[in-house]
């Protein structure tokens, strides 16, 4: 016999306990489906490039988050984030974060303003719940090839240079986690991208993935994988990174959620050449 802490009802047979386990499992699976569907919506389609995101939770559901929001001015707003903790509590706060992003993206004019607005909206709840979320928000402008971004305590994305074998962290932009302090004002930074360049946004579950010897995957391995696969399309790069992590961890249990977002600029020259090629029948 045990006492159910949630309802105060005393159960005295294992049948009821098994029923409860079954209900709980079903509800967790439903929650997993909701989260998966919200995360894996269709990525926006735009001229001159492609974007893609993917997330693999360490448990049934997770606290990592990414999203795309096409703006009326033709830009694409991208966000990636990591809620403190794991599992169901983190997943609940991830949904809260998503709502705050969608609402802020609609009404704010830049990534920094979006983060400022999100901190304003979420600070009180996160402080009460003793939690926080790190976020990186960026606007891709396909008409000017510029990426403007702001950071709230998140890993800096990696800049994959298309015409050189160089992958480096994007310039540092300071900003503290959302939920850390009230009234934070975040700042924007803009970089110019070029044909074939790509940007890799990610969460720390990638670089902190561990093998059975307790070694971490680390940034160097990630950079090497990106250099080796940079000529591929975003879907193939994503797959290559996942395969590289799986090979490194050798089946060791996944400790943290793994999330990445890839933005890649097309080879405009190749596209023009292909458009001008005669049709072969």
């Amino acid at each position: 016999m045990y006492k159910d802490g949630m309802t105060g009802i005393h159960h005295n047979n294992t049948g009821e306990s098994a029923d409860m386990d079954k209900t709980l499992k079903r509800e967790i699976n439903m929650a997993r489906n909701i989260q998966s569907q919200l995360l894996n919506g269709k990525p926006p389609v735009f001229e001159g490039g492609e974007v893609l995101g993917s997330s693999v939770p360490a448990r049934l559901i997770g606290g990592d988050y990414f999203d795309f929001y096409p703006l009326l001015n033709g830009k694409i707003r991208i966000v990636i984030g990591d809620v403190m903790g794991k599992g169901i509590p983190a997943a609940m706060l991830m949904i809260l974060t998503r709502g705050a992003f969608r609402s802020a993206a609609e009404t704010t004019s830049s990534p920094a303003d979006t983060l400022t607005s999100m901190n304003q909206a979420l600070y009180s709840d996160l402080r009460t719940l003793k939690s926080f979320v790190t976020l990186l928000c960026a606007d891709w402008d396909p008409s000017t090839f510029t990426l403007t971004y702001a950071n709230a305590g998140h890993n800096l994305p990696l800049y994959i240079k298309g015409k050189e074998s160089i992958v480096e962290e994007m310039p540092k932009v300071k900003g503290i986690m959302v939920g850390g302090l009230p009234d934070q004002v975040y700042t924007n930074y803009t970089i110019q991208l070029h044909e074939k360049d790509a940007i890799f946004f990610y969460t720390d579950g990638i670089v902190e993935a561990q093998n059975n010897e307790k070694e971490q995957y680390k940034l160097d391995r990630l950079i090497q994988t990106l250099i080796e696969n940079k000529q591929k399309c975003v879907g193939e790069i994503e797959q290559s990174v996942m395969e590289s992590i799986e090979k490194f961890t050798e089946g060791a249990p996944q400790r943290d959620d793994i999330t990445m977002v890839l933005l890649k600029i097309s080879d405009q020259q190749a596209e023009i050449t292909s458009l001008n090629s005669p049709l072969i029948k």
């Binding site: 403190m84 003793k130 902190e208």
Partner: peptide, 14 residues
């Protein structure tokens, strides 16, 4: 230290 650990340090600050 992971994010939950950082949450503990933040709690210590508060």
């Amino acid at each position: 230290i992971d994010s939950t650990g950082i949450g503990s340090i933040m709690n210590a600050i508060y």
